[in-house]
Simulated assay, not measured.
Amino acid sequence: MFILEATTQLSFWGPIVFFCIGVPAALFNIIIFIGFKTFRKSPSAYYVVGQSLLDVSVLLLVLLPVISSVSTSVSSTVCKLGLFLAQVTVSGAMSFLCLTAFDRWACTSRSARVRRLNSNHIARYLVLFTFLFWSLVNIPYLIFCDLIPPTYVCFSTNDVFTKIVFYFLAPIFSTVFPLLVLIIFIVLTHRNIRLIAHIHDQQQPVRTRSSMWEQQMTRMMVAQTILSIFCTLPRAIFYTYSAITLEQNATKSFNQISIELLVDQLTISIMSINFVSSFYIYFLFSPRLRQTIKIHLKSLCHLTPNQVVPIDNSLTIAQNRMRHH
């Protein structure tokens, strides 16, 4: 009973806490990376904004089932749209994490040909492609998912599609494949950074503002990628375990099922950190971001120092003479 109670409490309070923490952070990301030219000129800004928009959507979709008046069991249409949007937003958000890792690899590459992939033009097309790709891939959820009587649970009504979801769509697209992509690009980026540092030590180049800003962007994105790897790994392991033991579900004991439900909820909560952490990671690892936020907060609160305006002495003397006359 304790395990079931812990699972219930986690599934109720987890979405509420993540929503309260994550939505303001995602909105800050959107404001900063769109509103400030320094951040906007980097191709990574497109991926950060796209991810932030999907982060808000994911957190909202996770929160809705907690609200008693909102449920996917309300109607067939709500059921289909709920599952479809959940898959699109989660897969899309994970894709943008992969794209930021790819962008940092391209930016730090020694090859000029690869560095050309780090451009605003390509970033715009990749953002549009990501939204379109996941919308098309997840169309089967609109076709094969519905309310299943007598409990009216919202899930797949087709046995073949159910196996595709368990063995391919959910584990591969949402966790395993993004995890592999993140690991590959973080290793390649780390190698590029070491090569660049070695060349810099030999040549002792003069650092420009743009190169220093790119280094900060790289530090921010690498930190976010490393955190995403650790947050996604438990979910990928649980998906693998669920796929292997899918045929044994009928023979599992009550205690085993309860423990699996708790682990399922724990891995969901850990993976949800991906959707709430980006702003806090950027704030922690970027002095430029902290300085920019500090300056604009002072400006909004009218805490900027008073400016001294020079006075034209000749004009003042002329005005005094006119008064005497």
Rank of each mutant, 00 (worst) to 15 (best):
F2G: 10
I3V: 08
I3W: 01
I3N: 00
L10E: 07
S11T: 11
P15R: 12
I16P: 06
V23H: 00
A25N: 10
I31C: 04
F39C: 00
S44Y: 00
A45M: 01
Q51S: 06
L59N: 07
L60E: 02
V66W: 04
I67Q: 13
S68I: 06
S69G: 02
T77Q: 11
V78P: 00
C79T: 04
K80Q: 14
Q87V: 03
S91H: 09
S91K: 07
G92L: 03
L97W: 03
L97S: 05
A101G: 05
R113M: 13
R113W: 14
V114T: 12
L117G: 08
V127Y: 00
T130I: 02
L132A: 15
L136W: 12
V137H: 06
N138L: 09
Y141S: 11
I143V: 15
D146F: 04
L147K: 03
I148Y: 11
T151W: 07
T157A: 15
V160H: 13
T162S: 15
Y167D: 13
P171L: 10
S174N: 11
I186Y: 08
V187D: 08
L188K: 01
R194G: 04
I196K: 02
A197K: 15
A197S: 15
I199C: 09
R209H: 12
W213A: 05
Q215S: 14
T218N: 03
M220F: 00
A223C: 10
T225M: 02
L227T: 00
S228K: 03
L233M: 07
P234V: 08
A236R: 01
F238I: 06
I244V: 11
Q248T: 10
I257G: 07
L261W: 05
L261H: 09
L261I: 02
Q265F: 01
T267D: 03
T292D: 09
I293S: 04
K294H: 13
H296T: 08
K298R: 14
L300V: 11
L300I: 13
C301T: 07
C301S: 10
I311V: 15
T316Y: 13
A318L: 14
R323D: 11
H324E: 12
H325L: 15
